[in-house]
Design a binder for these strands. Sequence first.
DNA 1: AAGGTCATTTGATAGTACTATTCCGCCGTG
DNA 2: CACGGCGGAATAGTACTATCAAATGACCTT
Lengths: 239, 239
Amino acid sequence: MGLQGLHGQVVDGIGCSLAGGEIRAGEVLRLEDVQERYGVSRTVAREAVRVLESKRMVTSRPRVGVTVRPESAWNLYDPQVIRWRLASPRREAQLRELAELRAAVEPAAAALAAGHAGPGERQELIAQARALIGAARARDSEAFVTADAAFHRVLLGASGNGMFAQLAEVTEELLVGRRDLLLLPERLDNPAVRRHLDVAEAIAAGRGAEAAQAVGSIVAAARNEVERILDGTACPLPT
Amino acid sequence: MGLQGLHGQVVDGIGCSLAGGEIRAGEVLRLEDVQERYGVSRTVAREAVRVLESKRMVTSRPRVGVTVRPESAWNLYDPQVIRWRLASPRREAQLRELAELRAAVEPAAAALAAGHAGPGERQELIAQARALIGAARARDSEAFVTADAAFHRVLLGASGNGMFAQLAEVTEELLVGRRDLLLLPERLDNPAVRRHLDVAEAIAAGRGAEAAQAVGSIVAAARNEVERILDGTACPLPT
DNA sequence: AAGGTCATTTGATAGTACTATTCCGCCGTG
DNA sequence: CACGGCGGAATAGTACTATCAAATGACCTT
């Protein structure tokens, strides 16, 4: 995973502590503290700090030490940061943010995909949509998440926008996060599932607006689901 | 900016070369090459590699060296990466992606802001909208961009979603990028400008859907503008 | 073709010298 | 007496070098 090498472990350890709120913004760590806390050499400690600095989680200044920056400054799109936040007590807030982000982006990605997708991608979308429906019918939660993730990955990739495509990884974490929250095999077969095929067909036909609308209903439902589970305050779906 | 310390300069140099396509995916750099290319010690070279690794632009493996990863793997939301890509020959593609991202996110942010914004934020939005209109009337390109950036920063921040808020920085780069592309003082006073006040008032009144729609028209126009300038292929605005 | 050996390159540590910044005391001035 | 600027000293990061360990790809042997 992200912990290649000694420094990676240190980064992961500190990153976790930061995301978990164990170390709060404004607090300062000395390089020496990091060394003995993790039992590593100065070099490794510095590399770890450099990486965290690159993620904008800390700043390093002479005579002061390593200062923790406020969460709002962090690179919140860094996959590692997302994972830390998902593993933190504030997991719910992160899930909600991801759901909102996804709800905003995927419709736009679908609209673009209708214009940019290649023949293979259009076919792949339909194939994954059918696999999704099949998995839902079979109450196969495993295959369901796999097909769901694959579908949205292809969709985002077909948008031709690299930044959208990169959200596929995030989306997958969201999907498994949702699955973990409520593993309801009986809930698998809902209207949103069949909507996936509508999306695939709309994109295959190049009908961007239609695809966007269909995706919009899917992600809005997903977001609503997350919201409902998290804090009970579900927003009504726009008809 | 991001070049604090020696290693920062090396990171910036390599990052630039990578984004500029001077070093392509799959190519390998040896740590020793980095050392003599930038005249730095092994320690600094390693720190630079660690940072680039954190940005997912390279991987470092023993016996092989530092391998450049394909652009699709990079942390495209890292502000530094965005800046490198904006400074590269492929600047246009990056601008387009940013415009598309913004078009997708800001309406959603506006809808959320209608629910989450505090009293101060609602007032601030109206104030910035008025400042924007004033700057447009006065043909003051400088004040225009400032107010525009401030408006969207407050808007994104008021969404209550940290990931949305973080796009403010990106949006500002997009705004100045657009300004640089076409500094047209006479174009300042267009319908989209007055829409900002509609947005502010809708959010102030808590009418999320209305705010989202108004923002949608603004960002769609902006995106269309960018597209038109970049490659002449403008998409028709959805009525 | 399969397997082992070796060279190469990164990974990690220790030690050292440098540098920047902050803190604090000193002095002068108002 | 209080306030403010000035400068030294302590402190913590910055950077370099040297050295050993570990991993792995390539080559050679069988």
